[in-house]
Design a protein around this nucleic acid. Sequence first.
DNA 1: CATTGTAGCGTTCAATTGAACGCTGTCAAT
DNA 2: ATTGACAGCGTTCAATTGAACGCTACAATG
Lengths: 132, 132
Amino acid sequence: MSPLPALPRSELEVARIVWRLGSATVRQVLEELPKTRGLDFKTVQTYLRRLEAKGFLSAKRQGRSKVYRSRLRPAKVVREMIDDFLDRMFDGEAMPLLQHLIHDRGLSEEEVEQLRQLLNRLERENDEPDKS
Amino acid sequence: MSPLPALPRSELEVARIVWRLGSATVRQVLEELPKTRGLDFKTVQTYLRRLEAKGFLSAKRQGRSKVYRSRLRPAKVVREMIDDFLDRMFDGEAMPLLQHLIHDRGLSEEEVEQLRQLLNRLERENDEPDKS
DNA sequence: CATTGTAGCGTTCAATTGAACGCTGTCAAT
DNA sequence: ATTGACAGCGTTCAATTGAACGCTACAATG
């Protein structure tokens, strides 16, 4: 229930790499970062350490290295961050954001189609309640 | 082009009030804040000062008070913040966010309908190019 | 066995952010 | 004219964040 610690820019960037790889050492994360990013090994190490301290990642020693992995379901973390963003920007309302996304940003033809399908699927699920 | 200064939580909260009111003094902003927020007058003053320094707001003196108003189109600022969020969370892709919003959060029946209409309107606009 | 590189740990440091003062100036009522 | 009450300005202060060291441990290689 406690509203998740802050997950600032740089730490998020690193966390997302761990999420994507499933598990990773400092070096692996470093290698996944865009070459242009130019972060130091020690810096990445610091961010991973902080992510562990905040409870986002867990780590276990493997030989001389430490292997980090996600402790929380990434989708859940993402969800919380979206909720938080919604709160800050639109008092928690989803519609204004959707509106901005659709109206203000050029969605590609393809994206529009996908979106439409999402909606249809949702309607079907609504009509015919759980059948699993 | 310069990517807009950071607009952190508390400052955004204050900025949004000014956006909503069109223009406001420190005291007006203070009064619009939820009573539970309990910010000091001076604190709000500080945030407004910072917002002005960062170029989000402009201020002109009116009698003994200062009246703040938005210097940038709020919708534009919002848009930039959405883009930034998208970058941080989903490498700039809108789809994953839309998916999360629709699939993960319970949109109300009504919201779904509104959304569908947004899509339809968009299609119409696409078919028949600008005629304004 | 000595050397060398890589990893971890603890620390540091500047900038930003959340929050609030103290001093001064001034407008407004006694 | 004097006294307040409020507003602005500059300042402060702790916590967080972006970024990076220095020292030590150790494991592999010559």
